[in-house]
Amino acid sequence: AIERGSKVKILRKESYWYGDVGTVASIDKSGIIYPVIVRFNKVNYNGFSGSAGGLNTNNFAEHELEVV
């Protein structure tokens, strides 16, 4: 089962992080479509409006993740 702290591989082909491994930061139990927040070591794009980097978290559905 996917739980907080799990290392997961991203299976969503259109994702910037496809094939990468991230760490589960949290799981939303409220029934939303993409409840699993995954944190990565790298950012997906340069930040804007003065922020240092881009996003390094993204929401995924459990079926888009594979525990490694």
Rank of each mutant, 00 (worst) to 15 (best):
F48Q: 15
K13T: 12
I10G: 01
V36Y: 13
K29T: 13
S30Y: 05
F40T: 03
N44A: 07
S26K: 10
G22S: 03
N56Y: 12
K7R: 09
S15F: 03
I33D: 11
A1E: 10
G47R: 01
L65V: 06
V8C: 14
Y45C: 15
V68S: 03
L65W: 02
P35V: 15
I2Y: 02
G31T: 09
Y34L: 08
W17I: 00
G5R: 02
K42C: 15
G50F: 03
E64W: 04
A25I: 15
G50I: 05
Y45G: 15
S26F: 11
I37G: 04
K13C: 14
V36K: 00
Y34N: 12
A25W: 08
Y18R: 00
A52G: 13
V38D: 02
S26E: 13
N59S: 09
V24C: 07
G47M: 03
F40M: 04
V67N: 05
G5E: 03
N58R: 06
S6F: 09
F60T: 00
S51Y: 04
Y18G: 00
E3Y: 07
V67T: 05
E14S: 11
K29L: 13
L65S: 01
E66R: 07
Y45D: 15
Y16S: 06
I33K: 13
G31H: 09
F40K: 03
V21A: 01
F60G: 00
K9R: 11
N56W: 09
E66H: 06
N44T: 04
V36G: 00
D28Q: 07
S30A: 09
I10R: 02
G5Q: 02
V24T: 00
S15A: 02
T23M: 07
V36A: 00
N46V: 06
G22Y: 06
K7P: 06
F60K: 00
V67L: 13
I2M: 08
G47A: 04
N58E: 15
N44R: 07
Y16N: 04
E14V: 05
W17L: 02
Y34D: 07
D20E: 12
L11R: 04
K9M: 04
V43R: 05
T23W: 10
V43E: 15
E62Y: 14
Y18K: 00
S15E: 03
S15Q: 00
V24H: 01
R39F: 14
G50M: 03
E62G: 05
V67Y: 04
Y34F: 10
I10C: 10
L55E: 13
N59H: 08
N58A: 15
R4G: 06
A1W: 08
K9E: 03
N44V: 11
N59C: 15
A52N: 12
F60S: 00
N46Y: 06
K42V: 07
R4I: 15
V67G: 01
N44H: 14
G50Q: 08
V43N: 13
Y18T: 02
D20K: 09
A61W: 07
G22N: 01
N59I: 05
G22I: 13
A52D: 15
N59T: 07
S30K: 08
I32H: 10
L11H: 05
F60H: 01
A1I: 11
R4F: 10
V36I: 14
G54P: 09
L55F: 12
I10S: 02
V24M: 01
I32P: 09
N58Y: 10
A61C: 12
Y16K: 04
V24I: 05
E62A: 11
E14R: 04
G31V: 13
G19Q: 08
N56R: 09
N41T: 12
S49V: 14
S30E: 09
D28W: 03
A52E: 14
F60Y: 09
I32L: 12
E62V: 10
N59P: 10
I32W: 06
R12L: 08
E66L: 10
E66V: 09
E14D: 12
W17N: 02
G5I: 03
N46E: 15
K42N: 12
F48D: 15
I2G: 02
F48R: 04
G19F: 10
A52T: 11
P35K: 13
S6L: 10
Y18M: 02
G31W: 09
N59K: 07
I37R: 09
V68P: 02
K9L: 07
Y16F: 14
R39E: 13
A1V: 11
V68K: 03
E64M: 03
A61F: 07
L65T: 01
N41C: 15
E66Y: 05
R39K: 12
A61E: 05
V8A: 01
G50W: 03
V21G: 02
S30I: 08
A25T: 13
N44F: 14
N58T: 09
A25C: 15
L65Y: 01
K29I: 08
I2T: 02
S6R: 05
N56K: 05
N44E: 14
I10L: 03
G31R: 07
K29D: 12
V21Q: 03
Y18V: 03
Y18H: 04
K13P: 10
G19V: 13
S49I: 12
Y34V: 04
V21E: 04
I37F: 07
V67F: 06
G54M: 06
L65D: 02
G19S: 04
H63A: 07
N58D: 15
S26Q: 10
S26C: 15
V67D: 03
S49T: 13
L65R: 01
V43W: 14
T23R: 04
K42Y: 05
S51K: 05
I27F: 08
G47H: 07
L11V: 06
D28V: 05
L11Y: 01
N59E: 08
Y16Q: 04
I27N: 02
K13W: 10
K29P: 10
I33P: 13
F48A: 15
N56E: 10
I37Y: 09
V36D: 00
S51Q: 11
K29M: 12
E64A: 01
S30Q: 07
Y45N: 15
